[in-house]
Simulated assay, not measured.
Amino acid sequence: MLKTIWVGLASLTLASAAQAQSAEAPSPACELHIWPAERMASVTTGLLGGGLLDAALHAGKDASNKAQMASALDSPSQVDALQSLDLATLLELKPGTVIIRHEAPLERKTMNKVKTRRSDSTAACYSELITADVLYHKAAIYGRSLKTLFMVRDFGNDQKIDFEYKAWGGNGLSLFPAKEGEDAVAALDELVGVFKKNFEEYANNARKSMALKKKA
């Protein structure tokens, strides 16, 4: 009789321990993979309003602008800038989401063609943030600005895109590009600051788009 009672108690203890362990086991972490932009561009339009002649007239300046942009916003710097933001709030990520950085850009021409995950991850909760283009634009009438094209894709637990939002964020510049005698460091810092501001603008619109999809 005592043996039967002890066996029963042992079974209950093991079952309780197993249930507790199961309850305490953390759910698989979500992943957000980040990629920087492969290309940058500088476009200056004068009173001619664009075209081949306008491009030829400003080719030297645009080449210089691109070189400075590549210095301030190289691949690691783009990812650093994004990671410095509160991505969990901006993109409404699930608690505990792990940020995984990729410093090698994706080929720009594949961005819209590839509809599956861009990494080898098999995480059950998986999303991507891809920077597509970084564009400096100076217009004779509207002045200087930095525009950035971002794309967010959420896959859930498979290779099918559940949600995708691709759009530009853009804001004005007052320091970049620095003229002779001006603070070049401040001008480059402004690029990084506006890059982050562009993403915040983009993320605000992405959240609205996601909310509309959930209501549909």
Rank of each mutant, 00 (worst) to 15 (best):
A63L: 09
N157T: 08
N171E: 12
D120Q: 09
L82P: 11
L93M: 04
R108H: 13
L175I: 12
G170R: 10
T148P: 00
L149Y: 10
C125L: 04
L48W: 10
A55V: 00
D54Q: 07
G46S: 11
N171A: 13
Q159K: 08
N157Q: 14
A72R: 08
T122A: 12
K115A: 14
T116N: 07
P76K: 07
L146D: 05
G156F: 09
W168D: 12
L175P: 02
Q83G: 03
T148Y: 01
E103R: 07
F163W: 08
V79C: 01
G46M: 10
A123V: 13
T97K: 01
L57W: 01
E103F: 09
G143P: 04
T44Q: 11
Q83S: 09
A88F: 01
A63Q: 12
L93S: 00
H102Y: 11
S127I: 06
L93G: 00
F150N: 03
S119R: 05
A167M: 11
I130A: 08
L175T: 03
K138P: 00
V43A: 08
D154C: 00
A167I: 06
L73Y: 10
H137S: 08
G169I: 04
M151N: 07
P95M: 00
L129C: 02
A124K: 13
V43D: 09
R153V: 05
L85S: 08
K160S: 14
T44R: 12
T45W: 03
K166N: 08
V152D: 05
A132P: 00
R101P: 15
A59L: 12
P76N: 04
G170V: 02
C125K: 02
S127E: 13
D133A: 04
A56E: 14
H58F: 15
T97M: 05
A104K: 15
R144L: 00
V152T: 15
F163D: 04
R101M: 03
F163K: 04
Y165K: 02
D86V: 01
N112R: 07
T97H: 09
L47M: 06
K147Y: 09
